[in-house]
């Protein structure tokens, strides 16, 4: 059997992805890292950003929310709050979300409650736009 890496992506709403792939690139809390078959076991946080999966010379991009990644030699489990496939991103909407979040943020200071939530919304919108460009 070929050396295949099993990747599972789960969100609170559904199981988004479950398949064997060649490589997955994860936006980790300490920076982006790529995982191939036989990777050393890692438990990492995941930042809002862009995740991509390589399978059969094709790269698929996703915009992802916060979460965790559990990496073992044969399997990667990703627990993420939100996942949007790049090809399904509505750029118009993402742009609107971005400007809304920017407007909200400009009215707040770091001490405000909800500041973090809004800045997360902002980075999610940015991640969506970036991922959409690559779809």
């Amino acid at each position: 059997m070929a050396e295949e890496l099993l990747v599972e992506i789960v969100t609170p709403e559904e199981m988004v992805f479950s398949d064997t792939v060649e490589m997955v690139t994860i936006p980790g809390g300490d920076g982006e890292f790529g995982v191939l078959y036989g990777h050393a076991p890692v438990l990492s946080t995941v930042k809002i950003g862009e995740l991509n999966i390589t399978k059969g010379n094709r790269k698929t991009y996703y915009a992802v929310g916060k979460g965790y990644a559990e990496v073992t030699a044969k399997k990667v489990t990703l627990l993420l709050e939100k996942v949007v496939k790049a090809s399904q991103i509505d750029k118009e909407r993402a742009r609107r979300e971005l400007s809304e979040a920017e407007a909200d943020l400009s009215r707040m200071t770091k001490e405000d409650v909800g500041f973090q939530e809004v800045s997360e919304r902002l980075s999610m919108a940015e991640a969506k736009l970036k991922a959409a460009d690559k779809a």
Binding site: G28, G29, D30, A40, P41, V42, L43, S44, T45, Y68, E70, T72
Partner: peptide
């Protein structure tokens, strides 16, 4: 039981988990 490498640190991870 696997001995994981923790990223960022164990404490930071706990803080989020």
């Amino acid at each position: 039981r696997v001995d994981y490498t923790y990223e960022p640190s164990e404490e930071a991870l706990i803080d989020e988990l």
